[in-house]
Design a protein around this nucleic acid. Structure first.
Lengths: 152, 152
DNA sequence: ATTATTCCTATAAATTTATGTTGAAATCCC
DNA sequence: GGGATTTCAACATAAATTTATAGGAATAAT
């Protein structure tokens, strides 16, 4: 419960992969390579990228030599946008975004908990951009090199 | 994505229902009534309550005149425990709790994001007890009475 | 005995996850 | 220019998981 769906997880990794190429020339990245690098089925990636394209987070170039690129700089795309594109909202329950979703809402005590938690998460995800995550990954890689092969 | 499952949502409401009766004598509550009050299938509630019983969050009394009660005071049961009982963990991705879940972890930048977000959520849910939510609900009810029927 | 309740197991329905098949657009190469 | 190749695009189907319903057995009270 309260698990990020595969679409969310794969979608973020897809975006991170595009982001890592963005800084080195922004040449179009083909899904075949992303699929190999991230070990995700290319067919599934093709489906996942559709909403990202619709929400204008990525641009596509068809045909040979084509592929996908980020539509904006990695520093200008945050995780919340990505999750929203992939699911419509990044709230923990539907009634937080759509107050007509359930008519028990006025007397629902549980709602308050989900709303606060959703707010907390959303604020966090809005602050984190793809660039932030790239930097984090860089640092992580450095650290693991220092420590050598042993990993706690 | 990142939606609370029905088990989590129904499970919390079930526990809140038991909690609201706990303070008025802690008489056993029968699932049939919970089902009616919360408008959830009794058959489904029967399944949902099993892990809550296993984790010793509720006690059951079989036979006529039986039912369920909270095993502890509402102030001593927090939301995190409930969610963990219902799913095993209250992390956003499996790799946060089980580092062997995925062998990409060492180089995975996305992991850091999910880990931080999970921590944030977990801390929040640990702080919120059933009693807190009951109090919140009480306050909400008062407010809605003051305002009359109109609801923003 | 009868009734009310939890408990256990099976199965059906819906949704999410993943694969397969074919078509369309752009480039490459002859 | 035109066929071959590469890539995205669209649609269909299969597999797995979650959500929900169903039937009856076990237990205890009346």
């Amino acid at each position: 419960m309260i698990k990020v769906s595969t679409k969310g997880r794969y979608g973020l990794r897809l975006m991170l992969n595009l982001a890592s190429h963005y800084n080195s020339g922004n040449k179009a990245v083909i899904l075949k390579n992303v699929a190999q690098e991230e070990d995700i089925s290319i067919r599934y990636l093709e489906q996942i990228i559709i909403p990202l394209k619709i929400k204008k987070l990525v641009k596509s170039i068809r045909g040979a030599g084509g592929g996908y690129t980020l539509a904006r700089k990695p520093a200008e795309i945050n995780v919340c946008e990505i999750l929203e594109a992939l699911e419509g909202t990044c709230a923990l329950v539907d009634c937080v975004e759509d107050t007509d979703y359930c008519d028990r809402l006025p007397g629902c005590a549980a709602y308050e908990v989900w709303r606060e938690a959703s707010q907390l998460l959303q604020n966090f995800f809005k602050k984190v951009t793809l660039q932030h995550i790239l930097d984090l990954g860089e640092k992580k890689l450095q650290k693991s090199k220092e420590k050598g092969k042993t990993r706690r």
